[in-house]
Design a protein around this nucleic acid. Sequence first.
DNA 1: CTTCTGTTAGT
DNA 2: CTAACAGAA
Length: 458
Amino acid sequence: MTDAPTLLWLRRDLRLADQPALAAAIGEGAIVPVYVLDDETPKHYAMGGASRWWLHHSLASLDADLRAVGSRLILRRGKCDAVLAELATETGANRVHCIRHFEPWWRNAERAVAKRLDLICHDGNYLAPPGSITTGSGGQYKIFTPFWRALQQQMPPPAPLPKPSSIPAPAHWPRSERLNEWGLLPTKPDWSTGFGADWSPGEAGAHHKLNGFKRHAATYGETRNLPSVEGSSRLSPYLHFGEVSAAQVWHAVAGAGGSVDTFLGELGWRDYAQTVILQLPDYGSRNGRPTLDTLPWRTGPDAAADLKAWQLGRTGYPIVDAGMRQLWATGWMHNRVRMITASFLIKHLLIDWREGERWFWDCLVDADYGSNAVNWQWTAGTGIDANMFVRIMAPLVQSPKFEAGDYIRQWVPELAQVRGEAIHDPDEAGCRPAAYPPKIIGHRAARERALAAVKQAH
DNA sequence: CTTCTGTTAGT
DNA sequence: CTAACAGAA
């Protein structure tokens, strides 16, 4: 037994319960938990604005939770391998525990840290260790359904580890930077005023959300596609930042009955996205199917203006605008509406899916490299999972089909007074308020333009 | 045991 | 169209 503490390197695993890296470190003596704010390692994928808002509150919550069990969170900035090496020298630590991550930049960073220090990576953020589910011939799955069938054979996941009642502290704490000086919260202007009503980042907030969801998990399959109804779990940001583990969620809801299997499938998609970025690390920027590399996406001033209209929720399609405004106001968008807005950008506006991926990356509190890339490429039809570009979603059909009226009234104030079914297409119903923009392009014309473009690509 | 080939399915 | 599997070669 030596006095040398062990470093606990935290990233997207900001919890104390079911935290295998923490559990392993506790067995070795004193622990220095550290979060490194590192924008250099992810480069283009440095956290976006909404994620930074979440991170700020999550780190504050984690520090309080750590202090309640005799520890604290050390904050440092810089390139993670250099910062960890420096902290190891300062504290005399010779070992680092972390939970393994699969974003390509984290895989590189783990290799870089392992060159300088004794780094031990643990699995624990996914239902099964990504890469461990293989096809009959030993390869990695490319399609969701067979992957999910194979993953279910390995379920349930191991029972979650308990939260430690105390964490051994080092004799001397190294210095920590101050969270308030990191500038993670928006100031000029503060666009986050609408975030707090929906979210309380941190482990306690995650479990509060999970406990609330347990009560309606059995009807998830019937209500999840209705944006006017609170049918989804809203666990995505908590899962992304690791404030609750997938195994904890599984064990909490698996016995709920009803259509809870539909929800468990969504956890499966989360694991699936990791196997995709393991196989194709640049999936966030490169088409899974190179046949669509030649698709003539619109560029230039007109396309830029259309992109702006989409971002601001001023396309003249109520369901699209409601979704984009919910995203801007709260850092989150209902999943059905994510599909509709994404499809609209790609096919109606014929703008490169990477522009949408980037906007979601900046605006979502649950922005996740793997899930975001998989979902955008699925919608674009460029992904390794089959979905045809020529299948074009009709937003004005989706909107009544999923009863989005009240959702539109909530998020598009110009339309709040429109009654009945006219809400889905006030232009067509002849009751469009002057303050609400006309359609940016007609559905028929957009469809024909998209089909012509994909014909040209082949 | 490996490779080929036909069948089924793809939220 | 391709992935994945099962059964054949």
